[in-house]
């Protein structure tokens, strides 16, 4: 029960990848939007850890050892939480 509450609270604090700070380690919590399937195919899956490398029109991030560029529209569909 407490674990479920903790997970719920953690999800409440999730932000989109566009909003995340550059240089922070993040964990993907939820994918939400029309680009979900495409994002998953490219490796942006739930529970995956990533690091945002730069912001801007197209964001740069490192996902599982690969540097990826994704548009802000897609980054808005990736909900992340910081990794301690």
């Amino acid at each position: 029960m407490s674990a479920a509450v903790a997970t719920g609270l953690e999800l409440d604090s999730a932000i989109t990848l566009s909003q995340a700070r550059v240089g922070c380690d993040m964990q993907v919590r939820v994918l939400s939007g029309p680009g979900c399937e495409r994002l998953r195919r490219m490796g942006f899956c739930e529970e995956i850890r990533l690091m945002k490398l730069s912001g801007g029109r197209n964001l740069l991030c490192r996902v599982c050892g690969t540097k990826m560029a994704i548009s802000r529209e897609l980054a808005d569909q990736v909900w992340v939480t910081p990794v301690e």
Binding site: G33, P34, G35, R38, L39, M42, N58, L60, T66, K67, M68, A69, I70, S71, E73, L74
Partner: peptide, 11 residues
């Protein structure tokens, strides 16, 4: 559909 940019940048 929504077509947004996504590209791998290899080392």
């Amino acid at each position: 559909g929504q077509r947004s940019f996504m590209l791998e940048l290899p080392p």
